[in-house]
Design a protein around this nucleic acid. Structure first.
Length: 521
DNA sequence: CTAGGGTTAG
């Protein structure tokens, strides 16, 4: 109404443009934003740095980097916001090389520029790079790490299992006088839990007065990953008692906790009530949990019934949970039934489908089928993500890929590993699992690689570089395979070492020849 | 609202 009353005043000024362009960025309105860009040029306030920055940022957010770059190049005046926005655009697309180049070139940096670089590394799963940038940031007198940077750093430590550096960040936070926040507590809890120190996570949790749904969720998920299902449920009760409403991810953690601890009835009742009590409608992930829960406990028919009646299309994870249940319970017939069912579905979308089938055939001993699938995969150039392990020694995270030659001490590591394998075969009763083919998404292909799985290399390195009796902590990006699992058991026994391996889904603590997962994972 | 951060099953 106002606008109609005063048509003469309806030409927006640069402040209005800035405001509207920013709104387009936040509301995901690329078309509208673009049309505004055209109008900006008409009213000739495009030389304003605020207008330019908001336009540049808008294109960066939408991933239209050619457009963003054009705005950047045309801006006569640039400031730290201009540079940071452009860097963020590239970082979000995973073009870290471009981002890095600009970051090195920019005339001045502030805290936010560092956050953008560090969080960009995390988004591209380059956690070691994230920590490297953080250390560089500490050398820069003009900036001080803020809450956002520290959250990123803890996140990187959590992914890497870098306990020492995580502890260092914790001390830094306590000394820095940053106000207590649920964000930092959440990141600390998650870091400790993922680094194998659920006890420290618990201490942080109990020491904080600012708890929200995220704090509780990271604690619950942490307990779950450590196989502490009952404790996870207790934590859930405490959360409810404190009047905090769980979200979909909280419930995922709780259900998974039930699954790992065999709490079938409890899990089912939580699942059945999540909509009415918490207003969270089950997503495909929750169905995945319940299928896993039922399948693991041996209720295969019931699990299959859930898959058939669920309101959405079952995804690859669900089929895998079912097949994994068949494998655990040695139910070949049911497994083949499911494979029949899957092969009628879309066969060539995910590489996951191939691996899944291959695993099942391998577990059924149908090697000719495995070989055939393998050829098909090679023919289609399906790429699988490489297996990778990390180990932190003296505050430095060492990364092991199947191509271990990259590591400066690789020959020594190989020699050590050969020795270890020999010793455990003779003294530890270890027998190599020669049938091992793609047990999980283990892409470390035995045929083509004389290389060992990355977790074996990491453990050899750990034995070389740590004192006798020190626990060895390893993080692996995929699930540990059966062969490595039994090797770790033998090593823990023969070399009297506690070995803690965090794999993709949970912790395995090897001690005196046994694993905390009770061979059930 | 000219630029920045966290929890996630298998």
């Amino acid at each position: 109404m106002l606008a109609l009353d005063r048509p003469a005043l309806s030409i927006p000024d640069k402040y209005t443009f800035t405001f509207v362009i920013t709104a387009c960025s936040h509301q995901q309105l690329p078309m509208f934003g673009k049309s505004i860009h055209g109008r900006v040029i008409k009213v000739a306030c495009e030389s304003d740095i605020f207008v330019g920055n908001s336009l540049l940022n808008m294109y960066s957010i939408f991933g239209q980097m050619d457009e963003a770059r054009k705005v950047f190049d045309e801006m006569s005046q640039k400031d730290v916001v201009t540079w940071t926005s452009l860097i963020r655009g590239y970082a979000k697309l995973g073009e870290m090389g471009r981002a890095e180049e600009l970051f090195n070139k920019m005339p001045e940096r502030n805290e936010i520029s560092w956050v953008v670089m560090i969080s960009g590394c995390i988004g591209s799963e380059r956690y070691n790079d994230a920590l490297r940038y953080f250390n560089e940031m500490l050398c820069d007198d003009k900036v001080k790490p803020n809450e956002a940077v520290l959250v990123c750093v803890l996140c990187a430590c959590a992914h890497l299992g870098a306990l020492d550096q995580g502890k260092w960040a914790h001390v830094y936070i306590d000394k820095s006088g940053l106000p207590e926040s649920s964000n930092l507590s959440t990141a600390l809890i998650d870091m400790y839990a993922k680094c194998g120190r659920i006890d420290c996570a618990d201490r942080v949790f109990n020491g904080t007065s600012k708890r929200d749904v995220l704090t509780f969720t990271s604690m619950i998920s942490g307990l779950t990953a450590h196989g502490l299902g009952k404790e996870a449920l207790q934590m859930f009760s405490q959360m409810v008692a404190e009047g905090i409403k769980p979200n979909d991810i909280t419930l995922l953690g709780v259900l998974n906790g039930c699954s790992h601890s065999g709490l079938v009835e409890k899990g089912c009742s939580i699942f059945n009530e999540m909509e009415q009590i918490w207003g969270v409608s089950p997503k495909v992930e929750h169905y995945g949990c319940i299928v896993d829960l039922l399948g693991r406990a041996g209720h295969l028919e019931q699990a299959f019934e859930v898959v058939k009646t669920m309101p959405m299309e079952p995804d690859i994870v669900i089929w895998r949970a079912l097949l994994s249940a068949c494998r655990i319970h040695g139910n070949v017939d049911f497994g083949e039934l499911i494979v029949d069912h899957i092969s009628q579905l879309d066969p060539n979308v995910h590489s996951g489908g191939f691996v899944l089938l291959s695993n099942l055939y391998a577990s059924l001993g149908r090697w000719e089928k495995v070989a055939k699938l393998r050829n098909q995969m090679n023919g289609r150039k399906i790429e699988l993500s490489p297996g990778c392990s990390w180990i932190e020694i003296d505050g430095i995270v060492h990364e092991f890929l199947p191509a271990v030659r990259l590591h400066p001490q690789s020959r020594e590591i190989h020699e050590k590993l050969n020795e270890v394998m020999k010793v455990i075969s003779i003294e530890g009763g270890y027998v190599a699992n020669t049938k091992q083919v793609l047990f999980d998404l283990s892409e470390e292909d035995k045929e083509q690689a004389l290389a060992w799985h990355s977790e074996k290399l990491a453990v050899a390195f750990g034995l070389l570089r740590t004192d006798a009796g020190t626990p060895i902590r390893i993080v692996k990006n995929l699930r540990i395979c059966e062969d490595c699992h039994s090797a770790m058991k033998s090593i823990s026994h023969v070399f009297s070492r506690e070995i803690i391996v965090r794999d993709r889904s949970r912790f395995h603590t090897f001690k005196e020849g046994k694993c905390s997962c009770k061979d059930y994972w």
